[in-house]
């Protein structure tokens, strides 16, 4: 049951180009390997994937130990933009990089939609 990576890539590309203020996106395995990525040129897929996995695992651990329950989303807000990690089923994590101009509500909605679409390819 090979994963259709071409399909994943095209969903990511579609998401990045169609969503305002989104600068990049990546789908990674929970142990930090890229499944598909559309990232700004200066960023290394493998590194971004590893960082996403580390961040998510720490977030989940915090959720557990500090009684926050299961983690849906990890949110990094910097003065130049956002990094949002969303779990995408058991086997993948979805990272979205957006500029500071992004409208959060719309962004969340678009991410939710993309996650649903990605999940259909992953199963």
């Amino acid at each position: 049951m090979a994963i259709n990576t071409a399909k994943l890539s095209s969903i990511l590309q579609g998401f990045v180009s169609a969503t305002n203020d989104v600068q990049g996106a990546a789908l990674v395995t929970p142990d930090g390997l890229p499944l598909a990525a559309t990232l700004p040129g200066s960023m290394d897929d493998e590194r971004v994937s590893a960082m996403s996995a580390a961040m998510l695992s720490l977030g989940e651990r915090i959720g557990q130990e500090l009684s926050r329950g299961g983690i849906d989303r990890i949110y990094v807000e910097g003065n130049q933009g956002y990094g949002i990690l969303t779990s995408c089923g058991e086997d993948a994590v979805f990272l979205v990089l957006a500029s500071e101009a992004a409208k959060q509500g719309i962004l969340m909605l678009e991410i939710k939609r993309a996650v649903n679409e990605l999940k259909t390819v992953l199963v």
Partner: peptide, 12 residues
């Protein structure tokens, strides 16, 4: 131990 184990999918 606080661990951050994930299932390995690479050569690991």
């Amino acid at each position: 131990v606080v661990d951050t184990d994930r299932s390995a999918t690479d050569e690991t």
